[in-house]
Write a protein that binds this DNA or RNA. Structure first.
Lengths: 348, 348
DNA sequence: TACGCTAGGTATAACGATATACCTGTGGCC
DNA sequence: GGCCACAGGTATATCGTTATACCTAGCGTA
């Protein structure tokens, strides 16, 4: 049998090496007073020599703090990788958690309705995390109640459904992105503008559609088409097919995310429709993807990393890890690139 | 002061409700023998009624098993979201971990050299995870030694550097993807073929370049250009610029990942070079992105989800959670789409 | 009858860190 | 000189589970 390494040092080993009690070591590493400077030094040196760090499990058991945050992403792998929305949020969250030694416990569940709830329940029941981040606020969302019942710290990225008293983070001037997108199109002479939205159970889907319609109405216009889609490439291709089939086809389309927009652009060009010559296309989120393609995608930038960071800070504040949760999130703004132009039939 | 909910039930509460000792409860939930069927039922009912689940922290402290796996991704948020490589791996890993109640603790660190090591060290020192997944095997990789020294279960996704005795998962027939990509091009009459690789410290970069050169050599050809890039869009654009500037410009380019390939295609078209008419382009990984764009990207498919799953299984096996770690990973294969065609100057 | 054996439990010591309560020696002060 | 205060510690209960050792009743057997 092999010796299992040094067997992992414990606080007792450090105490023994420094010639003090375990309590003294604990006090030093937790910054409590009552230990003289020379003793403190001896203890710290001993800890360094043994490469000792407090065991997360023991700390968690004692203090009921796990120093971890949970997040459940409800998406199929394919969709997840096609749309790096989550990835950016996660990056933002991590960037705030890391410096404080917090970890992010991630669960990816499929579309089965019960899987998500089960995942949250497990995180809470097993006390694996100190808080959770919720994304994609949905109509009739039951997750808040569940988590409140489980006594879990929660923060939502997005707009709460109704007036749910859940802490939420969102950018100020939330409608500015969609509004300036529509106005950009109108200013370029577009009169028939379509919207391809995400699934209707999302709160932001309805919100953005409302802004879309209101902005058009302010210019005495109505949506030419509104198609409910599903964030997939296939959905986008299908939507574009239907839009272009129409005798009164739109001259511009807004998509609910960038991957649909890119897929839509390709579908249009495959049908012999030039972007932006015959059809202007606008995406949403400003993922790196949009800059990669030709023509580059005009899109509504959303500060996803900022949203992630802000969400993390809200949780950290309610865990008394930081004083002030506030962090300003850049408001959504239109990024004009190459996929939009003057309305067809007007340009010459 | 508000009563803090039910105060979270413990095993003792369950035992009390069932009228047995805590030990009896523990035995039942862990499937040990020595408890009669009726008592077992009483205990299970009590547990259900109280919604009790063992506290992860206490279990971890006792058994030294945290039921969590760690992973450190070393990338900037931008790069991470441009290239969903990691996302797919994570999906695969999660799909194996979830059913067994294991969690994935994710850390995203920037490019600073020390950050990654610090993250691994922290995972190990604090005993937050039972094992870690390593990706992107690098030349002169120090992570294995570090983790071995820390006594951490480790699995590498990719080819180990030298003969490092670290458990690794990779597809069989690893070179088949790159080889058939080159052969596809040669068969279409391409003679001047370039390769835009990722950073040179990656093991797979060198490996693929070797396969690239060997396959060409088998057809009495040599690489027209080899450019070392960095997985970014800017890097790809720059590379394409240099390739097309050359009087003896290549008629085909292979890129080390799909985002570079897509960015490269766009750059070419922006320079008035038709894809695939004037330049054939091949990517690597087969991310959903490749199907979104126009023309659709010919690429080398890699079973990233499978690799993630296999890695998770190796760890689970070494943690005695499953018997057999084996899982077959689909070998890399060429997916021919629209971005490749006959060599320019040959077609008519 | 005494003995052993087993099924079906119970009591309790870990696991590692922390907070609380409790010592102890020294100096200051009246 | 006697007493107190306080710096600088120590000893230990505790968190929730699990594993180990140990009971105990009931039955079969010599």
């Amino acid at each position: 049998m092999v010796r299992r390494g040094p067997g992992k040092p414990t606080i007792a080993d450090v105490a023994a090496l420094a010639g003090v009690s375990v309590a003294a070591v604990s006090k030093v590493v937790n910054g409590k007073t009552g230990i003289s400077a020379p003793t403190r030094e001896r203890i710290l040196t001993a800890a360094r020599k043994l490469q000792w760090t407090p065991s997360a499990a023991a700390v968690a058991l004692r203090g009921a703090k796990t120093r971890a945050i949970g997040m459940v992403a409800k998406r199929s792998p394919d969709l997840l990788s096609a749309d790096p929305h989550f990835t950016l949020l996660i990056s933002g969250i991590e960037s705030e958690l890391s410096p404080l030694g917090y970890g992010l416990l991630l669960h990816i569940v499929g579309e089965e309705p019960s899987a998500e709830e089960a995942a949250y329940r497990r995180l809470a029941d097993e006390r694996r995390v100190d808080g959770v981040v919720l994304t994609e606020s949905r109509i009739g969302d039951t997750r808040f109640e569940l988590l409140r019942a489980l006594g879990m710290n929660t923060v939502l990225i997005g707009t709460p459904w109704r007036d749910d008293p859940v802490p939420a983070v969102q950018a100020s001037g939330l409608d500015s992105g969609m509004r300036s997108a529509v106005e950009h199109l109108v200013a370029h002479g577009h009169r028939r503008i379509a919207y391809v939205s995400g699934p209707e159970d999302r709160v932001h889907t309805l919100y953005r559609r409302r802004v879309f319609e209101e902005t058009l109405a302010a210019h005495d216009l109505a949506p030419s088409h509104t198609i409910v889609s599903d964030f997939t490439a296939a959905g986008a291709v299908d939507a574009v097919g239907r839009l272009l089939d129409d005798r009164r086809r739109p001259t511009a389309v807004l998509f609910a995310n960038d991957s649909m927009a890119v897929a839509g652009m390709s579908a249009a060009r495959r049908l012999g429709v030039d972007v932006p010559g015959d059809l202007s296309v606008i995406g949403h989120d400003d993922l790196p993807l949009g800059e990669l393609v030709y023509p580059q995608l005009t899109t509504v930038r959303q500060d996803l990393v900022g949203l992630g960071r802000a969400a993390a800070r809200v949780l950290l504040a309610s865990l008394d890890e930081i004083e002030d949760a506030s962090l300003d999130i850049r408001p959504p703004e239109l990024v004009v690139r190459e996929s939009t132009g003057p309305a067809a039939g007007r340009q010459r």
